[in-house]
Design a protein around this nucleic acid. Structure first.
Lengths: 150, 150
DNA sequence: GTCAATGCAAACATTTTGCAACTCT
DNA sequence: AGAGTTGCAAAATGTTTGCATTGAC
């Protein structure tokens, strides 16, 4: 779940976030930095409430509203990606883990398996071209049963 | 949006729904039939609230709770599929339109373009096999800008 | 007649918003 | 100093639930 953070990742993420904020005349507050670090510590998929709880545990005070207001900024600057597994709540993952990937979700154990998305990205370009569409991103989710559950 | 319904579609959908209900000792009430017809009249993607409104317009009274309780049944019996475009609310589409397809969503105009999902289905089998996963379904969504918006 | 379904309103969960106090730049 | 940010609580959104009444089989 949490992992040791390489300072390299922190530096790159922080640079992206700061640059984004600066370009829009927004501020890099201590809450935003704290949240950024918390997000990077989460290797798995996380949600707003979870961030609040683990930050509280770590003794960092932050308002829920601030989390909800900051997450879109992190998405916008590319540090975080929204993933959604058909639930109502918003799930996120940071983009400094393994490379581009999509998700398989086991219907039995709810486990999420990540798989390389290179092929899906190629397919997306093919399909986009066919419809004169300019693709920016995609989401490919596969539901089924994982090997352990069979 | 709405269209002329072939009685063939109605018959097939009704058969699926009734059979499903019967097999679980559930009842085919007039509310459920009305909702089924309303769902079939929607060629585009729809949501719970929309169904309520158009039924009210047509003078059919139904409680919101009934809609929320019935939609999962329609999903379960295969008449309806849930599609989700990264919003919080649940969107659906009935399965009697064109064949299996996935969606491209224009970020500018929000238009949704459907495209044949045969290639995506093949890719899903390839990826599933690679991870010893048994795929049941998938969702492939592409975000970008449509031809009209460029 | 029985068991499930309905309507209604209240409860819920998640996310958004208004506003006064505060803090980066 | 000033514009953007925070925290808090209230509001909004979408969905679920409890319960008395109604209706399908």
């Amino acid at each position: 779940m949490a992992r040791t953070l390489s300072s390299d990742v922190i530096d790159r993420a922080e640079a992206m976030f700061r640059e984004y904020l600066r370009s829009r005349a927004l501020k890099y507050t201590s809450e935003r930095r704290t949240l950024l670090l918390e997000v990077l510590r989460n290797n798995e998929h996380f949600e707003a409430e979870q961030l609040l709880i683990s930050m509280r545990h770590a003794g960092k005070r932050i308002a829920k509203a601030t989390i909800y207001r900051t997450l879109p900024l992190l998405v916008d600057c590319g540090v975080v990606k929204q993933v959604q597994f058909g639930e109502k709540l918003a799930r996120y993952e940071h983009t400094f883990g393994q490379g581009p990937h999509d998700h398989m979700i086991c219907l039995r154990c709810r486990r999420v398996i990540e798989f390389d998305s290179a092929a899906a990205a190629r397919l997306r370009e093919t399909e986009a071209a066919r419809h004169r569409f300019t693709a920016h991103s995609h989401r490919f989710q596969i539901w089924g049963v994982c090997s352990q559950c069979r």
